[in-house]
Nucleic acid binder design. Structure first.
Lengths: 359, 359
DNA sequence: ATACATGGCACAAACGTTTGTGTTTCTGTG
DNA sequence: CACAGAAACACAAACGTTTGTGCCATGTAT
């Protein structure tokens, strides 16, 4: 009724497409498409006109259509066991950064340490036509056929941190062996000689490596490993507490503990304190992952940092290489990052100043 | 050269499409499509044949094409300020669960507390043709035009936890006021009368509500608020430490502190311990969020739990309602969840048994 | 002046679905 | 027997891009 310049279509959002631009400018859609993607066969003047009108009409490219046509989207699928804690969020953070720089978006799925869900997640990602799949394995994943589908579709597949035992994959890992070796050697340098180890499930590469690093460090000092001091578990806080209680009951308890995780070390710490033992004087502690809470326990926990963001970026870099060289999907590259040991009060006297660090 | 049953196409992944099924079965693509989506105009027998062949040939529907045709994907976009800590991962967890039940996948983006990035994230999601956008605002978001685009496209928009001050949106929030009220009343019931408050940025609805809950609880006990005991900050650990030091220097220091977050309370705790004050005897503490670390400090921290997973599920439920009633995009619904107070040692003697709980 | 390369653009066929509108066959009813 | 109506399926046009190829001007070398 009122005198508007143009009667806006009432309900529908009225998305503006290339066809609209083409009509408006009196050129073909080809020209529009090529102008927007900066194709060489389009004149500079035309490009300008197209760009300008696109801004003006607030043209939003439909990535779905593009993806359909090109058979490839700008989506990256990520599957992780969980996103609590510090490690995976940080890695994802790194992935997002690098991905968005390269013009990719990221879908994150959690497997909740369950192969079933992991399988379904991979399906979901394939359905979403992702351009790549980045995976850190669930704890109980022992079979890997669900990943064959990814490769058979020619989609780059990169594992990180928790990778399949067969080396025939592209992967980014931390040098877990080196991290464990450093931590253990640090304990040795503090004078410890009966060093216990809280190990994780050995079918996971990372825990295997950490255990080996521990053993090798002992060997360097000419120490034989003591089976009594080697505990295998799922690395929960309770697991650490239980193991520590058993060790304290030994005729000759350990003088220090290196844990393949931080929670498990926290469990040990709580038991030690409840039994009146002093940390690090009676028993020194070192963990793995450099979780956030390592800085707020008393004493603070020495721990191995995993370069989370770097790992995320490396994963994306590797993906980009793979997708640049389509034939190279069957390549096997492994990127290894170096960890860093954060020394705190749980393993060294004089460092245990929790409040001083805050001041 | 060798005698295989069929010469497999060498390189290409050879994705099987509806056209393939149609050819194989000698029917039209229409039939295939309708059979797969269980349309009523397809005979039961035909449906069976199609389903069977689909399984056999391992047919994978191309969601992109479907989304293109239908103008809507099965993707849900989520924008959160960050994914560290406990809250957002848990909410996302809830979202994922509910979403996958409804056949949706989830894209997660972080705004890193930056409006700029938030804006870009929303763009990215729109480009990905998401079916819905679920947002928790960045700390410094004060303008909201970038969300108009979403609504103008007719895409359901749901805010959660951190929502715009204008009530004209669909949202899911915690009853922050009730949570703060409960926590403060709990301190009052412990005999505290000089209760300080570590408040957050007041332009965010949640911190405003928490402050008000604190004030109202005081009022219930006939206590007037003391400006000296009200501290505003960004709620970091350092902020909490600094405020606590100032309060301890007062002629009449507080006998307890309620913090709008857990980190900020942790900062206060560390200062208290470093100055030889006993918690909760000299100063009782209560925080907000029920972060993981509240259970490992000494004493453990009393805190308000935010029903994270429930929130995630509620967000998706609301989204589903909105997308079911397309016209209702301009509806304004607000779902309010009730928090739960977890009482631990920092506010009540006899509860502070950190190790006993582990045993 | 003819031949030839080149820049700048248009045609039209894909990509894999969904869906409104036929078209055929069959069953039951008047 | 004729006819309405349903059941079961096919046709073909979308959805918004990308891209190989073809066309027509120029401009340059011969």
């Amino acid at each position: 009724m009122s005198l508007r310049k143009k009667q806006l279509p009432a309900g529908p959002p009225a998305a503006v497409s290339m066809a609209d631009l083409a009509r408006e400018l009196g050129v073909s859609m080809t020209t529009i498409s090529r102008a927007l993607s900066d194709h060489h066969s389009i004149g500079a003047a035309t490009k300008q006109r197209v760009l300008k009108l696109a801004k003006k009409l607030n043209y939003q490219p439909n990535h779905l259509a593009a993806a359909l046509r090109k058979g490839q989207s700008r989506l990256l699928g990520v599957v992780v066991p969980y996103i609590e804690g510090k490690f995976f969020p940080s890695v994802i953070q790194g992935i997002e950064q690098a991905a968005s720089r390269a013009g990719f978006s990221v879908i994150v799925c959690q497997s909740h340490e369950d192969v079933q869900l992991e399988r379904r997640n991979v399906e979901t990602l394939l359905h979403a036509q992702v351009a790549g799949v980045l995976v850190s394995l669930a704890r109980n994943t022992q079979q890997y056929q669900h990943f064959d589908k990814v490769r058979s579709r020619g989609i780059p597949l990169v594992f990180f941190d928790r990778i399949p035992p067969t080396g025939l994959v592209n992967s980014v890992v931390l040098d877990d062996h080196a991290g464990a070796y450093q931590a253990t050697r640090h304990l040795l340098e503090q004078g410890c000689r009966r060093i216990a180890h809280l190990a994780g499930p050995q079918h996971l590469n990372i825990y295997q490596q950490r255990r080996q690093g521990y053993l090798d460090a002992l060997a360097t000092y000419g120490l034989a490993p003591d089976d009594e001091l080697l505990n295998y578990s799922d690395m929960t806080l309770e697991d650490g507490a239980q193991a520590m209680r058993q060790w304290l009951a030994l005729p000759q308890p350990p003088d220090s503990v290196f844990g393949a995780g931080d929670s498990v070390i926290l469990g040990a710490l709580q038991v030690l304190k409840s039994q009146g033992m002093r940390v690090p004087q009676d028993v020194a502690l070192a963990g793995f992952s450099n979780e956030g809470f390592t800085a707020i326990t008393e004493p603070q926990l020495t721990s191995v940092d995993q370069r989370c963001e770097e790992m995320g970026e490396a994963v994306v870099r590797l993906f980009l290489e793979l997708s640049a060289a389509p034939e190279a999907t069957f390549m096997q590259r492994q990127v290894v990052l170096q960890p860093e040991l954060f020394i705190r009060g749980s393993s060294q006297q004089g460092v245990a100043l929790p409040v001083a660090t805050v001041a």
